[in-house]
């Protein structure tokens, strides 16, 4: 095998590190996307027995967005195996305890239920904010596109721009807004 060919071979089977910004993204829809990268399903060389899954670094997991009123309605079940050991934690409670857990559980449930699942999960790194440790940051070479664009909040737009925005009508100065 020539040196160039060997390099090509290494490049094909090398693990790639992807970064995914979870800000304002639905964790359950993102999980389906991240699953493809974790298992290597997006590569044409995919085979269930060849170890071609990649690393995925999820950042800003604190700022995920659940659909509808799922923050109040989604419940996470845990049982300690003792009598009366069942607990039901609401999504917002769990998110307050650990802002990475909802993403982790979403990806875990999206992966196929087999022995490989826990090993695949080892390749998922979740961080609540955008601070990534240096040893992880230096590996990253690709960014996964977000499922939907992050909306700009009105209070984050500079006041100047808001004031200069063309208006259909202007209230008179002595008009009382209720």
């Amino acid at each position: 095998m020539s040196l160039a060919r060997r390099g090509q071979h290494w490049g094909t089977f090398a693990r790639i590190w992807h970064v995914y910004d979870a800000k304002w993204q639905d964790p359950y829809r993102s999980a389906k996307l991240l699953k493809d990268y974790l298992m290597g399903l997006y590569k044409p060389i995919y085979h269930p027995l060849n170890d071609c899954g990649d690393h995925v670094v999820v950042i800003n997991s604190k700022e995920i967005a659940l659909r509808g009123d799922e923050w109040r309605k989604r419940v996470y079940f845990h049982h300690t195996t003792y009598h009366g050991g069942a607990t039901w934690t609401l999504a917002w409670e769990l998110h307050n305890k650990d802002p990475t857990l909802i993403v982790e559980k979403a990806v875990y449930s999206a992966l196929p239920k087999n022995l490989q699942r826990r090993h695949t999960m080892q390749r998922l790194h979740i961080f609540p904010n955008n601070k990534i440790p240096k040893d992880i940051l230096e590996n990253i070479s690709n960014q996964i596109k977000q499922l939907r664009p992050v909306p700009v909040r009105l209070d984050h737009i500079p006041k100047e721009e808001v004031d200069n925005f063309p208006q259909l009508l202007k209230y008179p100065k002595d008009y009382v807004l209720r």
Partner: peptide
């Protein structure tokens, strides 16, 4: 099935 999976990956690129 495997070939379809691979082609799905290749075409989405």
């Amino acid at each position: 099935e495997l070939r379809e999976q691979r082609l799905e990956a290749a075409t989405t690129q």
